[in-house]
């Protein structure tokens, strides 16, 4: 699982972190049942505060993507939820955005708008 955070982007680090892990899970790059690094370990690895990692993990748990177990750390949820249609739809939307030269930030804003 590759995590890349940009402190200069203006998006909160925990949000970026949750986004990175979410993308890895939804795309299937990390499989159900796979163990994620312990929060303290990941925080040291990225050189961020441990609360940043914990907050990202809690967000993902609330979405049902990971399970947090005391002493066992974070595990990708076994729930066999199928995201393949969502992944395909996202690919299609991104392709459309590229064709119409809509930048990523604008596309994200459009999606957020559509949610409300």
């Amino acid at each position: 699982m590759l995590i890349r955070l940009d402190p200069a982007s203006g998006v909160a680090l925990f949000d970026q972190l949750a986004g990175n892990i979410r993308a890895s899970i939804v795309s299937g790059r990390v499989r159900p049942g796979e163990r994620l690094p312990a929060a303290r370990e990941l925080a040291a690895s990225l050189d961020v505060n441990v609360h940043t990692v914990l907050r990202a993990y809690q967000e993902l748990r609330d979405e049902g993507l990971i399970e947090l177990r005391r002493g066992r750390g974070a595990v990708v949820a076994h729930d066999p939820r199928d995201y393949s249609e969502l992944t395909a739809a996202i690919d299609a939307v991104v392709a459309q955005a590229r064709a119409h030269e809509v930048p990523p930030a604008a596309l994200a804003a459009l999606i957020r708008e559509a949610y409300q």
Binding site: M1, L2, I3, R4, L5, D6, P7, A8, L13, P37, L42, S45, L46, D47, V48
Partner: peptide, 8 residues
């Protein structure tokens, strides 16, 4: 300035 971590 990018923060990076890869693990398996």
């Amino acid at each position: 300035t990018e923060l990076v971590s890869w693990s398996r």
